[in-house]
Write a protein that binds this DNA or RNA. Structure first.
Lengths: 135, 135
DNA sequence: CTAACACATGAACAAGTATTCATATATAGA
DNA sequence: TCTATATATGAATACTTGTTCATGTGTTAG
C-alpha cells in the first residue's frame, strides 16, 4: 500500500523497427539496467512462488475457505469437504508449516483456525481479484 | 526447506471437553450449515488453484516482474533472466494461454507485455501481501 | 487394562509440470 | 536464392506433489 512500483503502464509501443533490431541481438534494453529496483530477485521470486504454490491447491483452498468462517476439527473438515481424513491431515500439516493455520487441542480433537487476519485478508484479496480475472 | 512448524501457541486451556464430543463424531457443526454462502464451491476452488498454480513459478514471476516494468522480447528476457530461450518461450506460451500477457510482432522479434492493468494490480497485490507474510 | 476413536505420519504410487534438446517456421539481409 | 536470426513447439526426461494405505501416538470410555 505504501510503495507503488512499476506504475509506468505498458501502453507505449508503435514507432518501432528503426530504433532497434539493427544488429544480431544488440539488446533492446540497456544491459546495465536489466535489474531495476522493482525487479524481483531470484530469491524473492522463489519465496513468492513457493508460497503461491502452497495456496495453489483446490483442497487447501477449500480448507482455508472453511476456516475463514470458523475453526473446525480435522474430522469435520474431512466430512464437509468429502475428503479422506488422512489427506486433510496432510494438507493441514503443510498449512501449519507455512503458518497459515494454527490449532488448539481439545481432548481427542484438534481444532484448526486461520493463523491471523493477514491470512484472511490475503485470501479475500485473491478471491476478489480472481473474480474479476476469471469473469 | 523451512521445517519449523508453528507448534507453539498451542498453550490453550483444557477445560471445555463436556460441551461437545460426547458421541463418536456427532459433528461439531450443523451438517445442514456446512455450505455457507462464503464457502468456495469445488469448481471455484479449482479455478482459483489453477490460476494460482500458473503464478506459482519462480521464472514466470520473474518474467511478469520484468514485463511489469516494460515490454520485452523473448531473447532479452532470456538474457536478463539468464534462462534458456526455449524455456522462456514455453513460459510465455502458458502466460499467453491464460491471458496474463499479450504480444506484438515486430520483424523477427516478438514483444510481450502484461495483458492489462488487472494483471499488474494483482501482481502488485501479491507482492505487497507477501512482503508482509514472509517478512 | 483394553477397545474405540481422533489425528498424525511415513512410504509408495500416480499425476502433473518445467526444463532441455532437436527441429520447425518465419523474417531479414546478402 | 541461401544463410543467419528470432521464436515456437513436440518429445523426452527429471522433478515435484497430492493422495492413499498402513501404521503409530495419544486420549477417552468401559
Amino acid at each position: 500500500m505504501s510503495d507503488n512500483p512499476a506504475e509506468k503502464l505498458v501502453t507505449e509501443f508503435e514507432n518501432g523497427e528503426d530504433f532497434c533490431c539493427d544488429l544480431p541481438h544488440a539488446h533492446h534494453s540497456d544491459p546495465a539496467k536489466l535489474s531495476q529496483p522493482e525487479t524481483l530477485t531470484v530469491e524473492k521470486a522463489q519465496r513468492m512462488s513457493e508460497f503461491l504454490g502452497f495456496l495453489a491447491d483446490t483442497n487447501r483452498l477449500r480448507i482455508l475457505s472453511m476456516l475463514a468462517d470458523k475453526e473446525m476439527c480435522v474430522g469435520d473438515l474431512a466430512i464437509a469437504l468429502e475428503m479422506n481424513e488422512s489427506a486433510v491431515s496432510h494438507q493441514l500439516r503443510t498449512l501449519r508449516v507455512i503458518r497459515l493455520v494454527s490449532f488448539r487441542k481439545q481432548g481427542r480433537h484438534v481444532f484448526y483456525r486461520l493463523q491471523d487476519h493477514h491470512v484472511l485478508d490475503f485470501y479475500k484479496a485473491i478471491v476478489e481479484h480472481l473474480d474479476e480475472a476469471t469473469a
